[in-house]
Write a protein that binds this DNA or RNA. Structure first.
Length: 430
DNA sequence: TCTGGGGTCCTAGGACCC
DNA sequence: TCTGGGGTCCTAGGACCC
């Protein structure tokens, strides 16, 4: 059997910040953050800002003092620009290999089967990629090379954090003892697929590093953590469980959501916002040549509102026929909103509800690929319709009970709860 | 005053059927 | 007092990712 083909993970360094620097050299030496929508919080940080200890997702207003003291520049995000830069990086990578899986806006997996032909080593190919991407786009990238995706991610982490690797780390070139030494220095939470919760659980079992997880008994982990963990551990051992997907799959859902900058006080405003969301979503839907079979509307008060009562409710409206027609989708979304309100007795009594809180709304579309199995789509759509017709408001109640449990499970000191009962909300009356 | 906006996959458990 | 078992489909929720 031949050695498994190698995979490279090519990841742009501080991607959004680097994109901004390409177009404004003045910012090369300044500590920089790129901010989320409404300039809410930091979604990208330059190395200088990272060194100051500013965490990903820190709200801008909370770092204003630090920003003033150290001259941090905060920039509004420009996702059209980042998408364009991302496409350029992908185009360069395709010069090296036919097997390119665009994993996210700033990283791609690249199959090195053909890319290494004629090259002195996989690492040399990685260096060539770095030079070429920098030359063509101005963006710095790091490359991690390994026999599996999970190891390639860790290799990339090593390339980024240990300067003597010069931006390229090939784990397949290491001896077993060198590999184990590297992995034993990486916290278990750094592994791709291990989030905070899993990391906590593993740490309680004494498994604190990637090396320890790699050496832990597979069967016990499978029993305790499920199939996802089994795959991660196998991948750490060099057994590929996640294939390279070069062909982009159509989306299964498409979400348009925004937090409101100001409190929304009337149902009418909410309705207008939902129409706007639907129209944005439909536009993307059509651009991706998809149709959708159901519309999901979710409204919630601000997660940060300092009030005892929080409101969160949602509804799924199935469509008789999959469509991308924004008028039909808006109609479905608004009927969902109406239904949420109709099922509240307070609304019925008062006629008008004024929300004196700051809600955010989400509009979500479940999509079906028209080129795929139509019968399956139809069945699913009918099923969604059937569910809503059968259970009506009970569906909502079940949902809210689950959320309540979840919320209580997460907060230790105080247990504010979500309610779907308007009577429990501090509402201004019309 | 101000706290992002997208996505995916897996599993438990209920409804329903034979 | 007795109270099948196996199967499918579906949803909500939980976990993760960037």
């Amino acid at each position: 059997m031949s050695a498994p083909a190698l995979i490279a993970l090519v990841d742009c360094n501080n991607f959004f910040v680097s994109c901004e620097r390409v177009f404004n050299p003045l910012w090369h030496d300044r500590p920089l953050v790129v901010l989320s929508n409404n300039d809410g919080c930091a979604v990208a940080r330059s190395n200088e800002v990272k060194a100051l200890g500013v965490k990903m997702g820190t709200p801008w207003f909370q770092m204003k003092d630090v920003a003033r003291r150290y001259g941090i520049v905060g920039l509004s995000s420009n996702f059209v620009l980042y998408g364009d830069m991302s496409d350029r990086v992908t185009a360069v990578l395709r010069e090296f290999s036919d097997e390119v899986e665009v994993y996210s806006i700033d990283e791609s997996f690249v199959g090195l089967g053909s890319a290494c032909a004629g090259a002195e080593s996989p690492a040399a190919t990685g260096q060539a990629m770095r030079r070429r991407v920098l030359q063509c786009t101005g963006l710095p990238v790091c490359v991690g090379i390994a026999p599996t995706k999970t190891l390639a991610k860790l290799a990339n982490h090593i390339a980024k954090t240990q300067p003597h690797f010069d931006g390229v780390c090939d784990l397949s070139a290491m001896t077993e003892s060198m590999l184990q030494l590297q992995l034993s220095q990486i916290e278990v939470g750094e592994i791709w697929g291990i989030g905070r919760r899993m990391a906590d659980r593993l740490q309680r079992l004494g498994i604190t590093t990637a090396g320890a997880l790699r050496a832990a008994p597979l069967k016990r982990l499978r029993a305790g953590f499920g199939v996802v963990m089994e795959r991660i551990v196998s991948e750490l051992r060099g057994i590929p469980c996640l294939s390279l997907d070069e062909v982009e799959q159509p989306r299964q859902q498409l979400i348009a959501s925004r937090s409101f900058g100001v409190p929304v006080r009337t149902v009418e405003e909410l309705g207008e916002a939902i129409s706007t969301h639907v129209s944005r979503a439909s536009e993307r839907l059509r651009r991706q040549e998809l149709v959708c079979g159901a519309v999901h509307v979710n409204i919630a008060t601000s997660r940060f509102a300092d009030t005892e009562r929080r409101y969160l409710n949602s509804i799924t409206v199935g469509l008789p026929e999959a469509t991308g027609d924004s008028r039909v989708l808006a109609g479905a979304a608004l009927s969902g909103l109406t239904r949420i309100f109709r099922e509240d007795c307070h609304y019925k009594k008062a006629g008008v509800v004024l929300l004196d809180l700051s809600p955010s709304s989400v509009c979500q579309h479940r999509l079906f690929n028209p080129a795929a199995d139509d019968a399956r789509s139809a069945q699913l759509m009918v099923a969604l319709d059937a569910v809503n017709a059968r259970y009506g408001r009970d569906t909502l109640r079940l949902g809210s009970a689950g959320l309540e449990r979840r919320w209580q499970g997460r907060s230790e000191n105080r247990t504010p709860r979500y309610t779907t009962n308007w009577d429990e909300l501090p509402l201004a009356r019309a």
